[in-house]
């Protein structure tokens, strides 16, 4: 999965080919595949998450929220949840395509905006990204070397350009940035540090992709968005699953038993998981640990933020006034 973030080259699947454009889904097929052990009570989850969104905003002294809407299922689900929690008039969805982004993604994002009736804005990130890497042989701020930058570097820059836009709009819209990363991508490190993972709070970070689909289907996310193959949308036809070499339901099941249920590699193998896959996913989880934690501060003084100075984010007086 080279699409998003600093996944180490050694962790990438060998010999996986770009699959080309996916055939349209059969309308009679099930909307999504949900492994039995991952099924959640969507009624409870919906209540917890909408109350969580309201509480995070209230405790921070904000009434509005802003998020990046890609046209994919994760940001669509969060948009629906935020709209339900605080009303669509308090939500700003920012569409931030790059010139290579799929027009279908943009159309799906526009459909979400239309259905929710929320505010939206289109901000092209192309000039930001090309301004650094250059374009058409003309170097940008990054110099001549950057003209030949890899897809990984470009993908990271796109994610960080979007972060830059969202945090700027956070000021003008007077709203908090809501995170849209799911548990699967967080655990395997399929995210860009200080890019798509940057947010004030994240309602769906403890939901696997399969559970995102399950919840999305109950809150009104359009079927086309639920059905389509998840993609980082960096080049035509790119899909997460083709890049990784296994499906989200397989990956979600493995992560669930490995992490939530603390099964050892031997136990996972006995359950029927392919040892090579167990090995590779275990490595991806371990090598991306740094993305899930606040950077360490060198301890010198008597009391150090994050080490032995520990306050809740929402302590008295912390809300914006």
């Amino acid at each position: 999965m080279s699409g998003r973030g600093e996944v180490q080259a050694g962790a990438l699947p060998p010999g996986v080919q770009s699959p080309g454009v996916q055939p349209p889904a059969d309308p009679d097929s099930p909307l999504f595949e949900l492994p039995e052990e991952l099924a959640i009570d969507t009624g409870i989850a919906r209540r917890v998450l909408t109350a969580f969104i309201r509480a995070q905003l209230r405790q921070a002294g904000f009434e509005r929220a802003v998020l990046g809407l890609s046209g994919g299922i994760d940001s669509a689900l969060v948009a629906f949840l935020v709209a339900e929690a605080i009303g669509p008039d308090r939500l700003l969805c920012v569409l931030m395509p790059y010139r290579a982004s799929s027009p279908a993604s943009r159309a799906d994002a526009e459909d979400v905006v239309l259905r929710l009736g929320c505010s939206s804005e289109l901000v092209e990130v192309t000039p930001i990204v090309d301004g650094y890497f250059g374009h058409d042989g003309v170097p940008g701020a990054g110099g001549v070397e950057a003209l030949g930058a890899s897809a990984l570097r470009r993908g990271n820059a796109m994610a960080r350009a979007r972060m830059l836009v969202l945090y700027d709009r956070s000021v003008t819209w007077r709203g908090l940035v809501v995170g849209t990363g799911n548990k699967t991508e967080t655990l395997i490190g399929y995210t860009t540090l200080f890019g798509d993972s940057a947010c004030a709070f994240n309602p769906i970070g403890d939901l696997y992709k399969s559970q995102v689909r399950q919840l999305a289907a109950t809150v009104g996310v359009p079927e086309a968005i639920i059905r389509k193959a998840p993609s980082a949308d960096l080049w035509p036809g790119q899909t997460d699953e083709a890049e990784a070499g296994f499906s989200y339901p397989q990956l979600d099941r493995l992560l669930y038993w490995m992490i939530d249920k603390r099964r050892s590699d031997e136990e996972l193998a006995a359950m029927g998981f392919e040892p090579a896959m167990v090995d590779r996913i275990g490595q991806m989880v371990a090598t991306s640990e740094f993305k899930r934690q606040v950077p360490p501060v060198a301890k010198l003084g008597p009391r150090t933020p994050g080490v032995d100075y520990l306050y809740p984010r929402r302590r008295p007086g912390s809300a914006r006034r």
Binding site: E37, A39, I40, D41, G43, I44, A45, V48
Partner: peptide, 13 residues
């Protein structure tokens, strides 16, 4: 704190 929203739990929690 509420946790484990698995569908198999009666009442969902």
């Amino acid at each position: 704190p509420g946790r484990d929203v698995a569908a198999v739990n009666a009442g969902g929690l």
